[in-house]
Design a protein around this nucleic acid. Sequence first.
DNA 1: GCAATCTCTGACCATCCAGTCAAAACCCAC
DNA 2: GTGGGTTTTGACTGGATGGTCAGAGATTGC
Lengths: 201, 201
Amino acid sequence: MPRPRTRIQQKNSETILDAALEVFSAHGFRGATLDQIAEVAGLSKPNLLYYFPSKEAIHQALLTELLDTWLDPLRAMDPEGEPRAEILAYVRRKLDLSRDYPRESRLFANEILQGAPRMRAAIEGELKALVDEKAAVMTRWMEEGRIARLDPRHLIFSIWALTQHYADFDVQVRAVLGEGHDPIAEAEGFLETLYARLLTA
Amino acid sequence: MPRPRTRIQQKNSETILDAALEVFSAHGFRGATLDQIAEVAGLSKPNLLYYFPSKEAIHQALLTELLDTWLDPLRAMDPEGEPRAEILAYVRRKLDLSRDYPRESRLFANEILQGAPRMRAAIEGELKALVDEKAAVMTRWMEEGRIARLDPRHLIFSIWALTQHYADFDVQVRAVLGEGHDPIAEAEGFLETLYARLLTA
DNA sequence: GCAATCTCTGACCATCCAGTCAAAACCCAC
DNA sequence: GTGGGTTTTGACTGGATGGTCAGAGATTGC
């Protein structure tokens, strides 16, 4: 199936990928079953396998699609912009992803947690290259005295950790906060303060 | 099997739990098989099931044991100590756990990621209670003007996120840093700076 | 309308996997 | 060394699960 050609193919492929995202992100690759995915998608299992050759293939399709979405916020960091504003905007975009695409975040987390068996190449290639590039930009900003000196890579890790935590550990965050909280709204203020202080020399 | 009575039982129970930790933390509950665990433990599958009644039970035993280890660093934060030193010491202890017990961290992460199906009670009970208690201590410190005003619960989340990231996302961290790095050693310096700045009003 | 193609399904396999069990092997106190 | 308990195992079972396939049903171009 060289991906969506007809209307029906388009629609069903999307339905399947959405259902698969739901199930994979909640149970991991091994924990997810084709029957579950089919159920959520409202299709029969053989019908899934008419659109995708295997469980592997569905998972792979999700991961591939995911990576771009995931890297976009960092890509968008403008080397010519005002450093503090650029970094804060990056934090905010990343937090928006945790709010709007928590399933994607968990899918990614599951994959990395288990040693990235299906993403190694992408991480060592595309991801590393992008981080190297942006780390260089940050280093320049630091040398120009526009933000405090810090290890730029660990600065990026901190942004990943702090923002994705709210998607990946959602259950825990909510349990600890109790009723009547909007974790991510609160996090926005907290992280703004944190990075404002951290980046000021 | 009311746990270790004889030498053999003692030794084999430990061997099994260690092997199970290895396998569960790497593949998640569903992704792990008894055969794998038996293989790693160097025992036969029926022999595992002589010591533990089920796969569930092994997993449960690990989680129960884990929770205490996991909460100890926060418990050890002294309400009568010097605030900044106490918080920094907590960060360091938590980072030590990521260094010395990465498998435990990943086991925990796997569990929470999948909605904490086997830990809900502990999280809503014990964990929440401890966080409430320590958050109150931090709030007092803030009111006394000894550290900057921040949401204490999100401050704790930030410590969890930043320290556990180095265990849970180890593959990614190493891939991005490349050869010749000791991620956690570097993180220690970074986090020290981060929290020093954050806590200074 | 009708053939060609696309979409869908019930029935089916082969494999994997948690868990059982009867009996063998082992250990140790006497 | 022998008897009673403990530990270990090979062989097995039943259910879940990924995947196949032949054919039925729906669509579409003509």
